[in-house]
Simulated assay, not measured.
Amino acid sequence: MSIAERRERQRAERYDLILAAARELAEAEGWDAVTTRRLAGLIDYSQPVLYSHFKGKADIMAAVATRGFEELAARLRMETANVTGARDVLRNVCDAYLGFARSRPVIYEAMFVLPTKIKFASEETPTALRAAFAELVAALGPDRQEPEFLAEVLWSALHGLVVLAQSGRIPATGAEARLNVLVQKFGR
């Protein structure tokens, strides 16, 4: 391995370490606790090392969010690939989306709740976000009129369920019934 390759590998490992530390700190204390100073202390690197990877906290959150989009897209893709019936695909994709939000609340918050510089529905939209959205479109089935708009409304409904449940504004009981209603309304 050349020196340049080793340095690049070490840089990638440091990048991953920073993201993991940010996620773990946010999970333990919330995103307000995530600062470059705290992260530098947690990973035993100086703040300038962090700044060599990220401009600041906003860029770190955006990178955590982007990794979240990658994970969400993979989960949704798995659900569209493993089921054959259109209604089952839609139900499984919606359930996977809700399950992701429940199991990864801090990442979900970085992806969809907190302000970021991530561009949605534009030329600059990250590939991982496009991939996750494409799975929502695919879950609706072929030959739907205005599938992207329909997927946006589905996504909005899913996001509303997530935020209302996480904030305790709707009870945890009834989650399955709400999912069934959603699938019934958006299914064919």
Rank of each mutant, 00 (worst) to 15 (best):
L164Y: 12
R75K: 09
L129A: 11
E109P: 00
L129E: 11
R9T: 06
I170W: 00
A128V: 04
A151N: 12
V64I: 10
D95A: 14
A157K: 14
L136T: 08
T116V: 08
N92C: 11
V93D: 03
T66V: 06
Y15H: 15
P142S: 10
R6H: 06
E146Q: 12
R102C: 14
M111I: 10
F54P: 06
A175N: 05
V153A: 06
S2W: 03
L90S: 07
Q184T: 14
G30Y: 00
F149Y: 05
A139P: 06
R130G: 12
A177G: 02
T173S: 04
A175L: 02
A22K: 06
V113D: 14
Q10S: 14
L158Q: 03
F120A: 05
L164G: 08
M111T: 07
R91V: 07
T84P: 02
E13D: 14
R37Y: 01
L25F: 08
I43P: 03
P142R: 11
M111H: 09
A63K: 02
Q10R: 14
V93H: 04
G30N: 00
L19F: 05
L136R: 07
V113F: 11
E29F: 05
A40T: 01
R188P: 14
E146C: 11
E124L: 15
L42G: 01
Y51P: 06
R7M: 13
L136I: 09
S52V: 00
P171C: 02
A81D: 11
Y45R: 13
E176W: 03
E124K: 15
R188C: 08
A128C: 07
V49K: 15
R144K: 15
H159D: 12
E146M: 11
S52T: 00
Q145M: 14
A73P: 05
K57D: 03
R11I: 07
F69W: 08
L150S: 13
E124M: 15
L114I: 03
T125Y: 06
Q166D: 09
K117D: 06
A58D: 05
A21M: 01
M111P: 08
A175P: 03
T66D: 10
I3N: 11
R11M: 07
A74Q: 09
K119A: 15
L154K: 02
Q47F: 00
W155T: 13
E13G: 07
E29G: 04
D32P: 03
E146K: 11
A134L: 03
D143M: 10
E71H: 05
A62D: 07
L42H: 02
A151G: 13
A81Q: 10
A139M: 08
A172K: 00
V89K: 13
G99N: 13
